[in-house]
């Protein structure tokens, strides 16, 4: 699971959970793969991100180095920032671990890089 995915995910599927965001990451295996850098895409994605959540998530798995806590304007001209973001959003991946719902504490496992957001039949009744 990449951090760009984490930034968009919620546990709203659970009954009684209002926002279910952000999910806490507990990673036991992290992998970094190289991905082609596309500054236009990163620039387009920035407005869709919750910056604080990204910053906290990156730091929680030890890849937040160099990422500013707040986003400065004119980020599209700052190539260093875009490169750093590219790495954090697309190259760092949680292979094994858990996502935890901030409201209920329910855990969703991540195995082989794929989060399993399924509930049990008991939870959807």
């Amino acid at each position: 699971m990449k951090l760009i995915t984490h930034n968009m995910l919620t546990s709203k599927c659970l009954k009684g959970v209002m926002t279910g965001y952000p999910l806490a990451i507990n990673a036991t295996d992290i992998k970094v793969t190289e991905v082609d850098f596309n500054p236009e895409f990163i620039t387009r994605v920035i407005p869709k991100l919750d910056w604080e959540v990204l910053w906290a998530a990156a730091n929680s798995i030890g890849h937040g180095e160099g990422l500013p806590k707040t986003l400065e304007p004119k980020y599209e001209e700052n190539e260093d920032l875009l490169k750093k973001l590219h790495r954090v959003l697309l190259e760092v991946e949680v292979e094994e671990g858990n996502l935890t719902c901030p409201e209920s504490g329910r855990q969703f496992p991540i195995s082989k890089g794929i989060p399993n957001m399924l509930l049990t039949e008991a939870e959807v009744q």
Binding site: T10, K12, C13, I114
Partner: peptide, 23 residues
């Protein structure tokens, strides 16, 4: 085109998954 791959998720489409306002 692996560079265009974001993620796949196991999830039930009948329940909400994505954050509000994400398009």
């Amino acid at each position: 085109t692996e560079s265009s791959y974001l993620d796949v998720l196991v999830s039930d489409f009948s329940l909400p998954l994505w954050k509000q306002g994400f398009k």
